[in-house]
Design a binder for these strands. Structure first.
Lengths: 125, 125
DNA sequence: GCTATAGGGGATAAATTTATCCCTATCCGA
DNA sequence: TCGGATAGGGATAAATTTATCCCCTATAGC
């Protein structure tokens, strides 16, 4: 994992939660694990846009942060299951609130987000 | 502003809210504007770790996304005030939930976050 | 003329995060 | 024996975000 050079601020609750939720796929990983998709291959199928590599890295961070736990079954072929810890479960209502706000404002959000990609018609019309 | 090369996914509410809240200082900007710190110089003083330049960029993005509005007073020296739009105000309860979770788990979060920076004692003891 | 105030922005570097590519290992079935 | 499924990781490139540095506007006051 990349070793950070700059220490983060941890001054308030917002700084703290940002440290664990920042990461392109982390929220989705927590969500799907909560829904019962426990195995890495299941998660990969639920999030096909992420490579297996990146999911592994983000899962490891979530595990280090004690939001999920990893159980390795000594079988062949290998089997691994992730679960939310009690700590991780406390985050689910928070994630619900985030998703709900996004759903509630879907149309408007899509419009304002896409502004950034429609810039400069250049020569067409 | 940097021009993105890859389009984001906007498949669910979580994707959508991520697009507007991702950004190191955005949540804090929304929060402080909501608290009544409306002028750029005030915001800069509340967030001294960010450079004025970066705050300007993130404020512009929030404005483009219609979460805040900008009023420019034609006086000298110049005066500018930001306010939350009605749309932006709907985000405040969401931010409260985030901050509350962080506050509720402050001790534990500080510990697990700092794991990442205590790696490799190398030669010390 | 110099300095301070208040707000802004271009160019570029540095930090950080994500993505790609490729390789390891075991067992099953065709 | 080859291919697929399962899980994992090193090395490196690409994308993206943040930070730094320096400059500009205009007016008031000394």
């Amino acid at each position: 994992m990349y070793e950070r050079k700059i220490l983060p601020n941890l001054d308030c609750g917002l700084d703290l939660i940002a440290e664990v939720l920042y990461g392109k796929w982390k929220i989705r990983l927590l969500w799907f694990i909560n829904e019962g998709h426990k195995r890495p291959s299941q998660l990969q199928r639920k999030i096909p846009d992420a490579s297996r590599r990146v999911l592994n890295i983000q899962l490891k961070e979530l595990e280090e942060q004690e939001l999920i736990s990893k159980e390795i079954f000594p079988v062949v072929p290998p089997k691994v299951e992730y679960s939310l810890t009690e700590f991780g479960k406390t985050l689910i209502p928070v994630i619900s609130v985030l998703g709900q706000w996004g759903d509630d404002h879907e149309e408007r959000l899509k419009r304002v987000i896409m502004k950034r990609y429609e810039s400069e018609p250049e020569n067409g019309n």
